[in-house]
Write a protein that binds this DNA or RNA. Structure first.
Length: 288
DNA sequence: ACCCAGGGTGACG
DNA sequence: CGTCACCATGGG
């Protein structure tokens, strides 16, 4: 599948297929990856890494040498996308998306971090979302060092739960501040997000939308990006446009018609969603 | 000044 | 059940 070569502190992965670091880091699934030299510097939880790709070769430079397996799992490199892509490519309407978006992998993120991040994402844009998360981490995330790089871990639920509304608003969270506070308190009190991995998509959705600031779209992002539900299908403004163009010849469909299309995409519809989303933004569908 | 951004809430019918 | 004004904030 792929080989791993370990040096003192780095790992060289070779023989990768269907992996595009640049697209995966920029596609809007995670908000703590930034360009760094030839690659990307990212933070997940309390871990950081510098990643650089050249063809089928990926260099992983982790903040701790013990985290190589963590990053291989985070990047979902152990999954074989061959069969899934083959499955999705049977739908001709997806061909153009899969071509333009090839190599995007769904990162396996931590549920609480993902939940907070996507509550922030509501009616917001990627640049501002990233900025707010960075400010939140700087405010109450553990301060850590990676070589000569200072960074902050994503805050623990208890840390966010201890903030005031004013402190949260200072992170640029606007009207979402009380949602973030309430959610952090619930998790700090012991709500187990990981349990949602093992129940049905519908039941998990219902649970998540009980959190303030979490509607169907945010719930599906959390389910897809952190809870292993590959058939969760977030529909935002871009997806609405893309579905209208790709599946309904530009005529806005009914809600039930959209649901029918999603169902037809099968158990990997969420992965397809990511490819379609990237395609829609790339093509600026619905804009000049 | 207006519109938009990986939408959700609450009120109203 | 569906619709819709409103919600903070910053960039285009």
């Amino acid at each position: 599948m792929f080989s791993v070569e370990l040096t003192k502190k780095k790992a060289i992965i070779d023989g990768l297929q269907y992996f595009d670091l640049n697209r995966s880091c920029r596609c809007g699934q995670a908000f703590r990856w930034n360009e760094h030299g030839e690659g990307f510097l990212g933070v997940a939880g309390d871990k950081a890494a510098i990643l650089a790709q050249s063809g089928s070769r990926l260099e992983i430079n982790p903040s701790s040498a013990a985290d190589i397996d963590f990053w291989i799992n985070y990047l979902d490199l152990n999954s074989d996308y061959t069969q899934m892509l083959c499955e999705l490519n049977k739908d001709e309407r997806l061909n153009v998306c899969l071509t333009c978006s090839s190599g995007i992998r769904i990162f396996k993120q931590e549920p609480f971090e993902t939940l907070i991040s996507f509550i922030i994402s509501a009616n917001n844009n990627v640049k501002r979302i990233s900025g707010s998360i960075a400010k939140l981490a700087a405010l109450c995330g553990e301060k850590l060092r990676f070589g000569d790089i200072d960074y902050h871990a994503f805050p623990e639920p208890e840390a966010i739960a201890g903030l005031s509304i004013a402190e949260l608003e200072a992170c640029g969270l606007g009207y979402r501040a009380p949602y973030i506070l309430d959610t952090a308190k619930r998790i700090a009190e012991g709500y187990d997000l990981n349990a949602l991995k093992h129940i049905s998509l519908e039941a998990a959705r219902k649970e998540l939308t009980e959190f303030k600031g979490v509607g169907p779209k945010v719930a599906d992002c959390v389910l897809l990006f952190s809870l292993g539900h590959t058939d969760a299908f977030p529909v935002d403004v871009w997806m609405g446009r893309a579905i209208t163009e790709l599946f309904f010849n530009g005529v806005k469909p009914q809600k039930t018609e959209v649901e029918s299309v999603i169902k037809s995409l099968g158990q990997y519809s969420g992965i397809a969603q990511q490819y379609i989303f990237h395609y829609a933004r790339l093509m600026r569908l619905g804009k000049k």
